[in-house]
């Protein structure tokens, strides 16, 4: 039911390779261009962060697996720009021949993020908490079970934030974060539909056949509609 990005618990990825604390953040150079372009394009206001995540995870599995991190960002960005009509497929097709040119900036679109507004835009961010959510059904200490399978129940194959490894698992509400925008609708232009969000704690042994230690736990932030009483 899920997509390639939903990899929590997967086997076969090998060792994690730590980096020095002071290793350069962006090597090679194009990584920082990709980051800045993604942030600046997001500020056009044409899509919410949920749609940006949806675009990245909707890259074909074979591309998702071979793309490096910022290649996924660029792929998602290109797809969104075309989806929202900001760029045409033909312009993307022709863009390769531009890459060698010295860029000639066009007159700035009224939506474009100005340099003078960067600090303000980054400081403002995009809070997802809302005052107008549906009422809370659960309280800290309550036993809850996640839906199974993990899937968007409004759009087939759509964006959701319930990972497959935690589907059908029983846990306990640890915190209530208040109402937050629901990614399952907002990623698809179907409205913010805010609802209560909970930190839910699961025993590792509830999630894994061979938990490393009986005391270990995994905590996920889960929307109310992902949960039923247990």
């Amino acid at each position: 039911m899920s997509r390639v990005h939903d990899m929590g618990g997967r086997f076969g990825d090998g060792a994690v390779v730590p980096e020095a604390e002071d290793a350069p953040l962006h090597a090679p150079e194009w990584h920082k261009r990709a980051l800045a372009m993604t942030v600046a394009s997001g500020a056009l206001g044409a899509w919410p962060i949920d749609a940006a995540r949806r675009a990245r995870e909707s890259v074909a599995p074979k591309d998702y697996a071979r793309f490096s991190y910022y290649e996924k960002w660029i792929a998602g960005l290109a797809d969104l720009l075309v989806e929202r009509g900001l760029v045409s497929a033909q312009e993307l097709r022709d863009s390769g021949s531009l890459a060698g040119d010295t860029p000639v900036p066009g007159p700035l679109d009224f939506r474009a993020l100005r340099a003078s507004k960067v600090a303000e835009a980054l400081e403002r961010g995009g809070p997802s908490a809302r005052e107008n959510g549906v009422s809370a059904r659960f309280a800290p200490g309550d036993s809850v079970r996640t839906l199974r399978p993990a899937a968007n129940r409004i759009v087939e194959g759509g964006h959701t934030r319930l990972p497959g490894y935690a589907a059908g698992a029983t846990g306990r509400v640890l915190m209530c974060h208040g109402a937050h925008v629901l990614p399952d609708t907002n990623a698809h232009g179907l409205g913010e539909c805010p609802e209560p969000l909970y930190a839910v704690v699961f025993a590792a042994s509830e999630l894994w056949v061979d938990a490393e230690n009986p005391r270990d736990e995994v905590i996920l932030d889960l929307w109310q509609s992902y949960l039923v009483p247990a």
Partner: peptide, 13 residues
Amino acid sequence: ALETLLLRKGLID
């Protein structure tokens, strides 16, 4: 390529 295109279209400063 994408950056050049967006600059030409005035979508990024």
